[in-house]
């Protein structure tokens, strides 16, 4: 099986700081890949590199075996990369429905209104469709970010802490949704601090610390990896 996304020795330098130093990882089709690590480990930076907001200092990103390093951000969505943001980036003055509609229209789907309605339904936001996005509580706002990203019909969905601000029930529903997306053939990359969610849904987990991948494997393997426990999970147990 060939990987949908391949990250090959990607390094990013901010002045004197190496935000990422030589990261290698693959994301398979039909899979959920977890990306965990303490704050400042470089998770969001890696997302920024994958969707073209930041160019890597060295290294390459391959999508379907093709290098996409020079491809500008706005063209990557047409190639099938969608994402949400840790610090919300909603269209705050548009309604919930219009937020998703803009995404569907930008993706040039054949019936944008229907697609938007469908995604809003999927995320359970139908009741709030006419609310102005800026007035949503954080939990709903996170779900709206997911709905909007899905309206772009991505093959690879990058979710940056989608569960922060959700309550337990909502988090569980999100987990179910992620499984559903996987069965639809969407590859999901998930940055999350909620370990129970990560351990439950992910097929593969990569642990980042100080810009390095310190471990990769199944949830089972990661939970028993001593260096991960040292760097990160230790505090949780």
């Amino acid at each position: 099986m060939t990987a949908l996304l391949e990250v090959r020795s990607v390094a990013v330098r901010f002045g004197g700081v190496m935000a990422l130093s030589g990261v290698d990882l693959d994301v398979q089709k039909d899979s959920i890949t977890g990306l965990i690590g303490p704050n400042g480990a470089g998770k969001t930076t890696l997302f920024n590199v994958i969707c073209g907001i930041r160019q890597p200092t060295t290294g390459v990103v391959l999508l379907d075996n093709e290098e996409i390093n020079g491809v500008p951000t706005q063209k990557r969505s047409a190639m099938g990369i969608g994402r949400t943001f840790q610090r919300l980036e909603l269209f705050t003055t548009l309604s919930v429905f219009d937020n998703v509609l803009v995404a569907a229209e930008l993706a040039r789907v054949s019936n944008p209104h229907a697609v938007a309605r469908e995604q809003i339904e999927l995320l359970g936001l139908t009741d709030r469709a006419d609310t102005i996005a800026g007035e949503l509580p954080t939990g709903s706002a996170r779900l709206l970010e997911v709905a909007r990203a899905l309206a772009g019909r991505p093959r690879l969905l990058l979710l940056d802490e989608p569960a922060s601000g959700l309550d337990d029930v909502e988090t569980q529903q999100l987990g179910v949704l992620l499984q559903q997306l996987k069965s639809l053939g969407i590859a999901v990359m998930l940055v999350e601090h909620d370990m129970s969610l990560i351990m439950k849904v992910c097929d593969q987990i990569h642990v980042l610390d100080l810009g390095n991948v310190i471990a990769s494997g199944t949830p089972e393997q990661i939970q028993h990896n001593p260096s991960v426990i040292d760097a990160y999970l230790g505090a949780v147990r």
Binding site: Q74, R76, G82, A149
Partner: peptide
């Protein structure tokens, strides 16, 4: 809608495929 979306978040617009 794209105009307003660009005002609110150019970053999100670009990741959704908007040519700013």
């Amino acid at each position: 809608r794209q105009f307003v979306a660009m005002k609110d978040s150019p970053l999100a617009g670009a990741t959704l495929g908007m040519n700013l």
